[in-house]
């Protein structure tokens, strides 16, 4: 038995196909109605569609940021939701759906990061053969300003993964260490390295921005001075010619 009112509530969650949704990067910002979770458990197709629409942008967003590859990120989305559909009946607690999806998606991202194919590709990237992926449309980018998305893409894959899991998804260093099969020191050092790069690029962009604004202000005041001088000269000429001053 479907629960149409709860389904409609979830459908009302922002969903624009092919577009990005501003200002909420993490799974913790998402809420899934308990009715949808129960529908998933029963294998209800409408509940599956709604769960996909509500959760897939978070899965895709995380996978794109960690893997920096749209094709692989789409694979992660597919694999995660195939698992959800096939195993939802075994979910003990309906409220755990979001956590379950996040855990499965993170595991799929890690599997791809570890795969020899991906490692070979990232080695090629390090050699400068590949451009970082940007999830935004071309019109949304501004190469002159601070661009977190772009700097994130320049970080090594492991660093990106630790940064995202720790600071966006709220994983602890212990949890990341367990996932990656490394120590907590490894997780902490990757996070520090990530922030070292991010903060230095951020400060550079700020000083560039300051310089840009100073230059603009100087140019503006110079053009005002020139305009003032020209106006004064014009007025003097007009008076000399017996015309009213502007």
């Amino acid at each position: 038995m479907r629960e149409p009112q709860t389904i409609l509530v979830a459908v009302a969650t922002i969903w624009r196909s092919g577009a990005s949704i501003q200002g909420m990067a993490s799974f913790s910002d998402i809420q899934l109605d308990a009715g949808i979770a129960r529908g998933l458990k029963r294998g209800d197709e409408q509940a599956q569609t709604v769960a996909y629409r509500v959760l897939s942008p978070a899965v895709m967003g995380m996978a794109v940021r960690i893997l920096q590859d749209h094709g692989l990120a789409q694979e992660v989305v597919q694999d995660t939701f195939v698992e959800l559909i096939e195993h939802a009946h075994s979910l003990k607690e309906p409220s755990s759906v979001i956590g379950w999806v996040r855990r499965v998606a993170v595991n799929h991202c890690l599997m791809r990061l570890r795969s020899p194919w991906h490692q070979r590709r990232t080695t090629a990237e390090d050699d400068g053969y590949s451009e970082p992926v940007d999830p935004r449309a071309a019109g949304e980018r501004n190469d002159d300003l601070w661009d977190l998305e772009h700097v994130l893409a320049e970080l090594p894959a492991d660093t990106r993964m630790v940064l995202w899991l720790h600071d966006v998804e709220g994983y602890t260093h212990q949890e990341i260490a367990a996932l990656a099969g490394k120590t907590t020191s490894y997780s902490k050092s990757q996070l520090a390295r990530g922030y070292q790069k991010l903060s230095s690029r951020y400060l550079e962009s700020q000083s560039d921005q300051d310089g840009f604004e100073r230059k603009n202000r100087t140019q503006e005041s110079q053009s005002k001075d020139r305009a003032g001088t020209a106006s004064a000269a014009g007025n003097a000429n007009a008076t000399e010619a017996g015309l009213p001053a502007r």
Binding site: G18, S56, A73, Q78, I85, P135, Y202
Partner: peptide, 28 residues
């Protein structure tokens, strides 16, 4: 700066998968 960067990371937009992705999942 570190607090600001963390805030900006959390403000990055979600990314919708391409429209055909759901059909592929259903097929699988």
């Amino acid at each position: 700066v570190l607090r600001q960067l963390k805030h900006e990371l959390n403000e990055l937009p979600l990314v919708a998968p391409p429209p055909e992705a759901w059909a592929q999942i259903k097929a699988r």
